[in-house]
Design a protein around this nucleic acid. Structure first.
Lengths: 337, 337
DNA sequence: ATCACATTTGCTCGCGCGTGCAAAAAATCT
DNA sequence: AGATTTTTTGCACGCGCGAGCAAATGTGAT
């Protein structure tokens, strides 16, 4: 079948012929810093335009062993913050010439499969923006040299073979703790996300440590099996029902906004409490819903765009750095605390 | 540089040698319905396992002109429903052996660029789940044979070169209209999304038509420049401020939940109205937030998974069908109306 | 054991482009 | 103008695999 010719699959050879140059000159015309004269580049581009040619990135990747493709591994679509991260990441990546393979980690045990998918497409890097990445899984993936680079985005990792780009959780949570103490709350309650092996609970630890240091008492802590408002809602109800008023927390510090939203819903609609008059709440991430009039969450905004830009420099290999990258974000004071 | 060998890039040839068969037998072992004996498949798989081999999909795509890759073009990350769609689509696609290239359409004029990106990776199909796809853009893309298939997901399109997979908007909205009339609301207000050329406003038209038919009057209509709760919030305030109580709508029918959320926030927090006692609200999509205790939106759930499954059969070429696919969803009655 | 037929295996050629170097052309200098 | 340097262009080879066919092997009936 001459299907390809029929289907108008124009190759560099066709353009070369039309422009009266060699195929290599054609491909050079499409390569930003190639050694080519302005004149022939223009000739080529005109011919290419006319024929509707665009380089086949499959062939280019195969030949060069660089794909300019990264895999985005996501395992947690219930957290609205993921949408924000995906938007920012794909935007910054695309602006810098990178394409994104979105890989849905179907369940907890799918990490190897997801990594395999990515590696079969020969991605230059895998970026993890999920939560349930086990150190074992990561090491296995790296051991088999499944992917060239593994980057944990917006989350800390202490795995030495991995680079993480994240906010400085310790500094951020200390700031939140200080703010809460400054408002003179007395009975804090920390609502954490899933307790995994890989994600070290820096936020929780930082908050607890700060509180102990200044108030000499250990805040109460509870965890939720996933960063899902619905789960947080149930967790709060389970944990705080049948509690005497004087044992009820006066501020709930949440590991992120997804949890904060669930907590606020539970406080208002199940316990009939006012926020922040009866109980205050803080979040983390500054998701879009945090700004809406229902919630108005006092939270902490991560500099996602800057983090994504750092990611790009890291991908380009400009940064030889293999140590984790930490960023400072900023507190956003609203009405919930 | 012998970088590749160093990097442990094991190819089918290596496995073939280890297993004592030819390279083609190795590749056949990885192809589900290939002509190969069970015995040699096992031999191959064991050798492959030991060497850590997995087929290079880049090379396979190049040679076969099929990539098993689809591009997901998204231009509207502010609507939380997109997260749901992405999760379902990537899940179903991956289960069926398809990978997903996530392409962020950076702005209104980026459609050609996004399509180009996709085509350079030789995707087998481009799936549009955004909103601002202009018919002109689509035609241009198809005219240049940029992509083999163009599929509009969860949205109608009347472009003849395009296949859309969507819910039957007319039936759905008629059902909502009947529900609203059954509850005896008198002054409906329809809140629509962006008015584009390509997206025919089936929901709005269906609602208006139904209302006219049964009540002999034309509902008031307003539109919002994007499916963003924040925009809907402002739009409602702009449109309904300084209006006499008897001219105020008693039900706001929204084109989707993103708008409904914004509308509810505005009604409650700006106008100090109760929902549904003072004003009722309906949505569409049944996003996760629609179920949370703050909103409890009466809405309409699209059968996204079934739609995604249809998409897969369409991609596999099992369906020769080129006409649009319509699905029926189901109304979800909650408290907002 | 022989033949007819079905199943399995091997192989040639090509997919479209990049790498690294050598040849050609252009620019600069004496 | 001729010699030298710099820029630009062309090319052999390979990236890893698939289509389609030919050779080899296996199966069952006679």
């Amino acid at each position: 079948m001459s299907d390809r010719k029929d289907a108008n699959e124009v190759t560099a050879d066709d353009v070369a012929q039309a422009a009266g140059v060699s195929r290599w000159t054609v491909n050079r015309a499409f390569k930003p810093n190639a050694s080519i004269s302005a004149k022939s580049r223009q000739t080529v581009m005109e011919a290419a335009e006319k024929l509707g040619y665009a380089p086949n990135l499959l062939a280019a990747s195969l030949a060069s062993d660089r794909s300019n493709l990264v895999a985005l591994l996501v395992d947690d679509f219930s957290n609205p913050h993921k949408l924000v991260m995906m938007e920012r990441l794909t935007r910054v990546l695309r602006k810098n010439g990178w394409d994104t393979l979105l890989v849905n980690m179907l369940d907890k045990d799918d990490a190897p499969g997801a990594l395999l998918s990515a590696s079969q497409r020969r991605v230059d890097a895998a970026i993890l923006i999920g939560v349930q990445f086990d150190d074992d899984v990561l090491s296995a993936a790296l051991g088999a040299r499944r992917v060239k680079k593994l980057i944990i985005f917006a989350r800390n990792s202490e795995n030495p073979d991995t680079i993480s780009i994240s906010v400085d959780d310790h500094a951020a949570m200390t700031e939140i703790a200080d703010y809460v103490m400054g408002r003179d709350y007395q009975r804090p309650f920390f609502l954490a996300g899933p307790q995994t092996k890989s994600a070290h609970l820096t936020r929780q630890e930082a908050f607890v440590a700060r509180w102990q240091e200044h108030r000499g008492m250990t805040p109460e802590v509870a965890d939720v099996p996933s960063y899902d408002p619905g789960m947080a809602y149930s967790a709060i109800i389970d944990r705080l029902s049948e509690r005497q008023p004087d044992a009820f927390p006066d501020v709930i510090v949440c590991e992120n906004d997804a949890l904060a939203i669930g907590a606020m819903d539970a406080l208002r609609h199940h316990f009939n409490l006012r926020i922040p008059e009866d109980v205050a709440v803080t979040g983390f991430d500054d998701v879009p819903a945090a700004a809406n009039p229902n919630y108005r969450i006092t939270t902490y905004r991560q500099p996602i765009t800057r983090m994504a830009e750092r990611l790009v420099t890291l991908l380009s290999g400009e940064l030889e750095q293999t140590e984790n990258q930490q960023f400072l974000g900023q507190m956003v004071i609203r009405n919930s605390a």
